[in-house]
Design a protein around this nucleic acid. Structure first.
Lengths: 351, 351
DNA sequence: TTGAAAGCGCTAACAT
DNA sequence: ATGTTAGCGCTTTCAA
């Protein structure tokens, strides 16, 4: 007696089996208080026996909502994972599901995720760092619920949860300058990313304020990879005189810098100070432990989801939340080394 | 003239605008060859102008498929990310989408993802490491399309793409033994994870084969974290005599081991050899670079997705694909240190 | 080549 | 307290 049971049970199956209407079965599942307890029990029992699972597609079609949010990142680095975890916490609090997708730095794939929302697969997307606002907004009517995390999307006014990248860059500079460094180089992020530019600008602004020339060393623009950091540092080390301190726009590049410094047999934190950005796990894991600008990743995610929820309820528009950053001082930065005196501008050489 | 355009356009809107039936519009979009070219063009033009996006929910309801696959992992470690990337490659080749979710080691959350499939949100799930087969299979009728990646699911016969964890453990042991080590300790993975047990067993089997006692040192069962590895190693270092080589069941614990060795001011690769497992990025990044058992993560993902596709077409059942592993020798293992001679069993002491 | 109509599984008015 | 009915947006017979 091969019982054919290949199909998922539906409320119709349950209704038929009990001689009830589908409406009653639906109510038993979603608004049990409306039913006579006995009926409710009977329905639930059969539902359980049949292994019933509500068809969320059908429900979504009817309700016009999925209670699903997509988190879209550019890559799958551990950094974004931390943001995602924060999103999840908030999502779970409010009965939403979250799934993660990534674009591999292909700008148009951001749009594809938005289309998924337009297609009813999710209620909204949290975009952690966006590439191309113009392409995003164009040809998308209406614009699906969208919140920007980590950085604002240029030219697009959507709820945003970010950090002040400019100020964070300035913090890095102040740390180094406060330690007495004057020959300071920076390794920036990708030139097209506005958050990379902001960090860079904040950094340079602070250098100028301290009377230093931010272009004394070439500002190398990297791809956030360890390899790039290493190569860049080799270049910087070849300068005469070499810098005594380096700011790398993320921790991975900073690790590359450290590798190069080690290879050059210089002492980290003494001959050369290095500060990173993000405070990823590798920062405290690497040896020596990396001084870096802490970014509250999980909080970024958490508040992004909260904003999304508000947006979905029609409560919020274009609001910007800025989370604080701070330098975490560990082992890779120290006082500027004593040196044969280098003249500051306008200062006279001793006789 | 505030144009109200809050709703996504539907085929109905397009049909109305052109005085066509929804059927024709639908065909223009999905089976254009059936239409008079001119009509097709008109439909496409309006669709484009209205920013039309097909409602995948509705289509899914009708077609009973989503072309979406969930990849479910226990945690969001970089290791699983690599597997996910492999899945994506295969998915894209065949016009599927993939989204990633994780269970935070909560066994029942695996079931929730399966329920999502039963609920029509996705066509199947690729489970990268499963906790509880029994709970998984119970009360789920019919069983949604499922493939196991990385390890087989005990007691559940589903398509599987894995490595031979037992053999991989044996490879680690052979490497150490081949280097002349005889005082070898191991730090195993979580006791409930069968893949952890398998690695452990393979390792011990090989030790016995070489006449060594695998329980000479306590086998510590950890949670795959760096901290555990470090603590475990401190324990092992306190033994007299301490081991000259250690096998850690993943790279993170191995890194913890290395930290402890450094703190003890012993030389890695000379006083103590350490071998890890997985060959994650940190393995080649850490200093010194970690010798480890390479696991083909991306391939694991890629083939899992291929299996899923086959399963969805009704082509495959219970097939198991085993991918090869191999020791990658780097800097943390070396010849066993010369020592005051320790007698092998039955060997006479010199007079 | 196109249209009418049914139906995927569910929920919510609106009856009763 | 429960049933009837319409409809979410789409695809697909079946007819014309």
């Amino acid at each position: 007696m091969a019982v054919k049971q290949a199909r998922q049970a539906t409320i119709k199956d349950i209704a038929r089996e009990l001689g009830l209407s589908v409406a009653t079965v639906s109510r038993a599942l979603s608004r049990p208080e409306l039913l006579k307890p006995e009926t409710r029990e009977r329905v639930l029992a059969v539902a359980h026996r049949l292994g019933y699972q509500p068809n969320l597609i059908a429900r979504g079609l009817r309700m016009q909502e999925t209670r699903l949010i997509f988190v879209v990142t550019r890559s799958l680095s551990p950094f974004f994972l931390d943001v995602f975890r924060g999103v999840e916490v908030a999502a779970r609090e409010f009965g939403y599901d979250v799934l993660m997708g990534h674009t591999e730095y292909i700008a148009e794939r951001e749009g594809l995720f938005l289309d998924q929302v337009a297609s009813g697969r999710a209620d909204g997307v949290i975009l952690v760092t966006s590439a191309d606002a113009v392409a995003l907004a164009t040809r998308r009517r209406p614009m699906p619920p969208l919140v920007a995390a980590l950085e604002a999307i240029d030219g697009l006014s959507v709820p945003t949860v970010c950090i002040d990248h400019t100020e964070a860059g300035a913090q890095a500079a102040r740390h180094l300058i406060g330690l007495g460094h004057r020959r300071i180089a920076q390794i920036a992020g990708p030139g097209q990313m506005s958050m990379a530019k902001d960090r860079s600008e904040g950094f340079e602004r602070e250098m100028r304020r301290a009377g230093l020339d931010p272009s004394a060393y070439p500002v190398l623009s990297g791809d956030f990879s360890i390899d790039f950091g290493e190569a860049a540092m080799r270049t910087l080390l070849a300068a005469t005189p070499p810098p005594t301190a380096v700011f790398a726009a993320n921790d991975e590049m900073a690790v590359g810098v450290l590798q190069a410094v080690k290879q050059a047999r210089l002492e980290i934190g003494r001959d050369i100070s290095v500060i990173g950005f993000n405070d990823q796990r590798i920062a405290s894991l690497y040896e020596p432990q990396l001084t870096t600008v802490h970014v509250p990743t999980a909080e970024l995610g958490y508040h992004s989801m909260r904003q999304m929820l508000r947006l979905l309820r029609g409560e919020s528009t274009g609001e910007v939340i800025v989370l604080p950053t701070a330098v975490v001082e560990r082992q890779t930065t120290g006082p500027a080394p004593a040196e044969r005196p280098v003249r500051a501008r306008g200062e006279k050489a001793p006789v």
